[in-house]
Design a protein around this nucleic acid. Structure first.
Lengths: 134, 134
DNA sequence: TTATTCCTTACTAATTCGGTCAGGATTAGA
DNA sequence: TCTAATCCTGACCGAATTAGTAAGGAATAA
C-alpha cells in the first residue's frame, strides 16, 4: 500500500497547476523541470488525468495544461483514484462475484472506506499551502 | 496504493484472533482454514506480526497464537504499518537524506499523515463488529 | 510551413508479490 | 523417552507491476 512514484508525480503536478490557477497554462516541459520528473513519464500521467477530466489541455505552440476547475473543487482522492484505481487487492472483484454479503471483504472495506473518505476531504488548495509552509 | 493480499490476510487473521480474545489460542491451521488463506503463507505473516509484538505465540502441541493485548488496544494502523512499512514510494528515503525541509515531499507527507491518523483510530474490536454486521 | 506542443502505443529492465518447499526447534502428552 | 502437533526460518519461483524509455503522430500559433 505504498503510494506509487507515478501517483506522487501526478499529485505534485496537480498541485503545481493549482498554484498557477488563473495565471495561464503550464507545459509538460515546465512542469517536468520544476518538479524533477522525466518528461516522457509525466506525459503519460497527464494524459490519464486529462481523460479523467481533472485537467484540460491545449495543443500546439504555446499550449499546455490547466486544472479543469478550481483547486478547492479537486480532491487528493480524485487524483489518487484516477492514477491508482481501487484500494482493494487486485484479485478481489476479478474472481469474486458477490457484490454484497461477502463477509471476507467487510473488514477491508471498512478500512478502505475510511481512507477514501479521508482523501476525498483533502483539496488541492490546501496542498498548495502545505508546499509553501514547508 | 493497493492494500496487498498479504496485508488483507494479516488483518483478517488479527480480527479472527480478536474475536476469540480471552477464549484460548488459535493455531495457524485453524486460522488458515477459517479465513481461506494458504497455511505456509500465513505462517510468514504471523511471524512478522509476532516480531512486531502484536501477537504472542506458544509452540508445541496445543500451541497457537493470541493477541498480545486487548482488541481495543490494537489499531488497524499498527497492523498495516507492520505488514506494509511506510506509505511513501520506495525510493524516497533511500536516496534522499533530507529529513526535513524537503519541499518535494511535503505534499505527499500531508496525505500520508492523514491516512496514518485515520488508520490509527480504527481498532480491532470495531472490525470484529464490522465482520458480524455484514 | 515550421517549430512547438500535446498524444499514443510499444517496449524493457528491475522489483515486488503471492505463494511453495524443505526442514528445524519446541512442547504436551502417551 | 518417544511422537505428534505446533511454531519458526530461509531459500526459492513464476507472474505481475512499476518506472521509465523510445518513436512517432496530430494539432496549432506564428
Amino acid at each position: 500500500m505504498k503510494v506509487s512514484q507515478r501517483t506522487e508525480y501526478g499529485l505534485r503536478a496537480m498541485v503545481a497547476l493549482a498554484g498557477k490557477y488563473d495565471s495561464g497554462l503550464m507545459s509538460i516541459k515546465e512542469l517536468a523541470e520544476q518538479e524533477g520528473i522525466p518528461v516522457a513519464f509525466l506525459e503519460q500521467i497527464m494524459a490519464e488525468l486529462r481523460r479523467a477530466g481533472l485537467i484540460v489541455s491545449t495543443r500546439g505552440a504555446y499550449g499546455g495544461y490547466a486544472l479543469e476547475k478550481a483547486p478547492n473543487k479537486i480532491s487528493a482522492g480524485q487524483v489518487i483514484s484516477t492514477l491508482e484505481g481501487s484500494l482493494s487487492p487486485a484479485r478481489c472483484g476479478a474472481k469474486c462475484d458477490k457484490m454484497s454479503g461477502c463477509s471476507t471483504r467487510s473488514v477491508l472495506k471498512r478500512i478502505e472506506d475510511s481512507i477514501t473518505d479521508t482523501l476525498d476531504n483533502i483539496y488541492l488548495n490546501e496542498l498548495v499551502k502545505a508546499g509553501i509552509d514547508e
